[in-house]
Amino acid sequence: MSFDPRHDSRRLFELLLLVASVLFAGLAIAAAQGLSRPWKAFQAQFVALGLGKSEVPPGIVEVSTCDGDVDRCTTCHLGAARLDLNVAAIGHPFRSHRPALGSHTPERMGCTACHGGVGRALDVDRAHALAGTAGVDPLLKTPFVLASCGRCHVPGDRPGTETLVQGALLYLQLGCAICHSLTAGGIGAWDDGPELRALGRRSKVELETSLFEPAADFPESTMPSYEPTFEGHPEELTVLSTYVQALTLTRLPACATAAARDLGALSVACSRCHLDGGPAAGVPHRCSYILERKAELRCRGCHGAATGKNAAQDCPVVAAHRPACVACHWGSETLRR
């Protein structure tokens, strides 16, 4: 194979032209990608619909959230803070926030503090942590968004946190607290279940799998299936799931003292268990696991034949009594010590 310089240089120039053109095409696509601004289309649409106050769209809107980060959701959700856009005809992303926001305006707290998502992102998929953005906690959708109240509030201290109170109660009644303790990042009285906060956020489907079919994710699990418990009570399932979601959300540092401050407002939550100021008579065990193992657990030894009084300190259920406080005061520094 002899080397023909003329032929070779000609071929080289051709190839070089080809590669350079390919590179140019790539750069052109990259430029188009890089310069596209999906949010501008939303803002233009907002103005076109006659919803905007001015003809000039606001550009990227950034607010600081109460966890010290920033979010830019209101760049597209232009109506979120307005009361006048609550018309059925106006769809997302322009509609007003449906339950009135009160003091919880985006300017004060941002959106992600309650709704999750990636506040710094500006395209639909990423901001809402949709498919393909693995590893990011998904947005909290409607019934579950109430979980976020627990990031600052002690369940029961404010109207609107009833779901969390009900959830806490279910958590105790169904015996979740006995295995999945909430004390100081602790482990349940029977040493069984992992601490739910340590497991991190789980989707609705994952939560249901864990409740109905515990062995599916954790083959060694001794947890009973709660499928029969929730049969015909989908609302209880939602309430409990919301509560469990709430446990796994990090508390907002700015609000961490709110729990302590609001202790006085807690009568609602406490009275659920301490009826008439008495012991935990309001918590009938509904957990089949406990009921079936009564003998094995020697409940009688502590409770006596008939009454629920005189429980000894080391009874696992009594150990779960402390979690009962924590069911509402989770993450509250004052109560962890």
Binding site: G185, G186, I187, G188, D191, A319
Partner: peptide, 16 residues
């Protein structure tokens, strides 16, 4: 770590 009474008998507590 805290008061002894914080750690109930029979439990293992994780102090993050």
């Amino acid at each position: 770590l805290g008061a002894p009474a914080d750690f109930k008998m029979g439990t293992v507590t994780w102090l993050q």
